[in-house]
Simulated scan of single mutants.
Amino acid sequence: MARSSSFSVTGIRQLRGQLKRNASLQDIKNIIRLNGSELDRGMKRNANFVKGYSVGDTKRSIKLSIQDNGFTAKVAPTTNYSPYLEYGTRYMSAQPFVYPSFTVQKVKFLNDLTRVMR
């Protein structure tokens, strides 16, 4: 069973009010697009698998899609076996490439939002 990673932002009312005073929605869309593309590059950079037979299908399957009128960036591999690479099986050890990229980018994203709110 594949686990998913996510994070949530609390205090959305305060965030909305502060953003209205300090930034335009286009600034937020630019931050989301930039962080989405950086996550895409980071995930592809980490998708170098040294164990077993690797031809690069998973790396090529990682795609960025911008949704919700620019307020959502979705980056994910589309191969059906990518969870096995990420989490491992009883026959092979894990070779994570999604979660490490996500944790690095999450910090950058939150820093960018904090910078816009000042």
Rank of each mutant, 00 (worst) to 15 (best):
G88S: 07
T114C: 07
A73M: 03
I28L: 08
A47N: 04
I31W: 00
I62M: 03
I12N: 10
G11L: 09
L85F: 10
L39E: 02
N22D: 08
R13K: 14
E86R: 04
M92T: 13
R45C: 04
G52P: 04
Q26V: 11
F49M: 07
R16D: 14
K20H: 13
S4L: 14
I62W: 01
S93Y: 12
A23E: 04
L113F: 08
P77F: 00
Q67A: 10
I28C: 03
Q67M: 13
R13H: 14
T79Q: 03
K20A: 15
F109H: 01
V104D: 06
R41H: 07
Y87F: 15
K59T: 02
T58K: 02
R21F: 12
S93G: 12
T89K: 08
S4M: 13
L34M: 14
S4N: 14
R33C: 07
F109M: 03
D40G: 01
Y91N: 14
T78A: 11
G36P: 01
G42R: 00
N111G: 07
M92H: 13
S93T: 12
Y53E: 12
D57M: 11
Y84K: 09
R118L: 08
R118Q: 14
D27L: 07
N35Y: 02
V107T: 15
R115G: 06
V107N: 15
T78L: 15
S5F: 13
M117K: 04
K44W: 02
R45S: 09
I32H: 00
P77W: 03
F97K: 00
Y91P: 08
T58F: 00
F109Q: 01
L34K: 14
Q14N: 12
M43C: 06
M92A: 15
V107C: 09
Y81K: 07
G70N: 06
M43Y: 04
A23P: 02
I28V: 15
D40V: 02
M1H: 12
Y91Q: 13
Y84C: 08
S82D: 05
V104T: 11
R33E: 13
E38N: 11
I62V: 03
I28Y: 03
K44A: 00
V98A: 01
G70V: 02
V104S: 04
R60A: 03
K108T: 04
Y84E: 09
N48E: 12
V55M: 11
K59I: 04
S54N: 15
N48T: 06
A23N: 06
N80Q: 11
N48P: 04
V107Y: 11
G52M: 00
F97H: 01
T103D: 15
G11I: 03
M92R: 12
